[in-house]
Design a protein around this nucleic acid. Structure first.
Lengths: 352, 352
DNA sequence: GTTAGCACCTAAAACGTTTTCGTTTTTAAA
DNA sequence: TTTAAAAACGAAAACGTTTTAGGTGCTAAC
């Protein structure tokens, strides 16, 4: 049986719509008798408040929009899970769109969400996004916007990120600590802030350890659908160009795994000949052999925080409270596994 | 600048709201002059039709709901991607909820979506779902509902599935064809139809090849968060119970990978000592060593088809056309890789 | 100079709520 | 019995659209 409306209840009881509405919301100026009658009939007729009408009246939909570059991706799907779990707790629904790493699509989708009048927007930018007008437009219309992971520093809104630079620094430092002298880097695309930051972290670690930075040791990856193949290809190129490399810090796990597979095929031993550190801690990284040393990126937590911040801004906006933009930096972990040498273990053995 | 309303445009031009509405929709009974004025001002004032008002009037939101057991999962996230891509094409938005394999949550979420008045619902059932009242309620309210992958046969709605039984049969047959004589099965949970079907396919293949079915060779897996550990544990148990097993058909890839890793650790060679076939073709299955022979499950295609069918039913309902429930069975592929012996290759060599 | 026809425009209802403000009815006090 | 206060109810506007049905005012034809 389809939900009834206030009108239908009112007609059956010969009272006004207003009274029905008030009765259901337990207003004090409705008699106990009427309330009982209304509540009973409401149950019988399967009354459910019409969300469309409520949205129109309240000018809010308890719905937010989420734009993400790629859904089939361990990190991003973890973020989605974090967002949805938190949204559910606060009674919000999430509309998800996928930008496919395309700036054009991203722009369209922002418009779509604005026209849909969602209460707020969460976004992780496409790699191609270099112009931020569409994002500023959102803010100009007083619609809460929170960015996560792939952010634009210049846009004045809240951001949830990890410290990519620091994580990359630690990853590179770990290679150095385990004895690597000549360290290559497979970097991500040129635009997004986080692949820039990872590159900078790598470079800084070298400098701080008096290892000269050599641009020819840096290889570019799209880090898109063909990451695995890119890893293999770069591994081959690297060996042709430089036969003295003993460590690689790689922008993302799947590329690293491609490289490992290629090296294994060529008879190069990991980590004895070359040590490798990846980034993101994809599920498969712990499962392959040798397992991959990598940076754990807390996707679920990032999603949770992103929604929390957005929710805060939505409620503050509603209550005319000031909105303070936050930049939240989440902790990352270096997970030491088999693809790097465990020198500390050796050291400990010597001490025994 | 926030979007203006028809009213604001009407006031500024000193004409009625109706005329503004018609002008924007290019009705024939509005003069060219007025249309031009309206369109210009509409652009200037950033007019965007209010979605809330439209929903209320049209009794539709161009939004569908999707309930899925788990988002961080290669197969399911592929399905989501398929659904979203198709929805975008037809101008629909997708609200995603995650049931966490919980029947209780699933029930609540169905109610949420019904109250939200989505135009239709897509669902893949939680493992624990054995009661279908909540689903029948959706249908009773004339709301289009399409199930995919994890379905309930008894619910009268459209379904998009693969032929789990046939796929499992082919997987098992492949083990037999490559010389396995004693084949174990790591099966999925007891309730969902697809893990039952995979078990049945396994059993049937044995029978058709005159291999006696031995229940003690069937091991249970939750196939949840700890699939990898389950695979390892089951591998150990299997070796203790039966030292003569030479092939295993495993309900899902991650369990299979756990088993492979454990076997490798114990010095058992894959596929020489034991051949293994998984299910679902997780990304990592092609990347590990030995790569895993598995059944490719077309997630993206399934998502596309699920939305297409739902969309068909939504539009038919709107146009008072009859709704015909479909059961669409998608093709699967057996991907032969390193975890099973390639006997045909050997045969071919002999023929040379 | 009436009338038909046309071009253009508007009023108003409807979608389903909520809430303010006013009106009616009841109760209690004078 | 009158009056004041309290209790219970309802009318109406508002949110922003669309569309039907009904005007206007004009031109052209008789």
């Amino acid at each position: 049986m389809k939900p009834a409306t206030l009108k239908q209840i009112a007609e059956q009881l010969n009272i006004s719509i207003s009274t029905v509405s008030k009765a259901l919301k337990d207003y004090p100026d409705v008699s106990k008798k009427t309330k009982d009658l209304v509540n009973e009939l409401a149950k019988d007729l399967n009354y459910k408040p019409n969300a469309f009408a409520l949205n129109l009246r309240n000018k809010e939909s308890k719905t937010i929009g989420l734009i993400i570059p790629e859904i089939v991706h361990h990190f991003f799907s973890s973020v989605i899970k974090g967002i949805i779990s938190q949204a559910e707790e606060k009674g919000y629904l999430v509309i998800i769109l996928q930008s496919n790493e395309s700036y054009e699509l991203e722009k369209k989708q922002i418009e779509l969400l604005m026209n849909q009048r969602v209460d707020g927007i969460l976004i992780s930018l496409a790699n191609g996004t270099a112009d931020y007008a569409h994002l500023n437009e959102v803010l100009a219309q007083d619609k809460p916007l929170v960015m996560f992971d792939k952010i634009a520093k210049l846009v004045r809104c809240s951001k949830i990120v990890i410290d990519d630079r620091k994580a990359a620094y630690l990853a590179t430092q770990h290679l150095i600590d385990t004895g690597c002298k000549r360290i290559a880097h497979f970097r991500g695309p040129l635009l997004p802030q986080n692949s820039i930051d990872r590159f900078l972290g790598y470079k800084k670690a070298l400098e701080d350890n008096n290892i000269p930075y050599d641009p020819s040791l840096v290889y570019l990856c799209e880090c898109g659908e063909h990451s695995f193949e890119e890893g293999k290809a770069n591994a081959q190129k690297l060996l042709q160009d430089h036969n003295d490399v003993d460590g690689i810090f790689i922008n993302t796990d799947l590329v690293a795994i491609g490289a490992i597979n290629e090296f294994k095929k060529m008879g190069i031993k990991i980590p004895e000949d070359i040590s490798i550190v990846g980034f993101s801690n994809w599920h498969m990284s712990s499962v392959i052999s040798p397992s991959l040393t990598t940076i754990d990126q807390p996707g679920f937590l990032m999603g949770k925080n992103a929604f929390k911040q957005l929710h805060l801004e939505i409620t503050n906006l509603k209550n005319n409270l000031p909105i303070v933009h936050q930049e939240i930096i989440l902790q990352t972990d270096l997970l030491k596994r088999e693809s790097t040498k465990d020198i500390t273990a050796k050291k400990n053995k010597l001490h025994l």
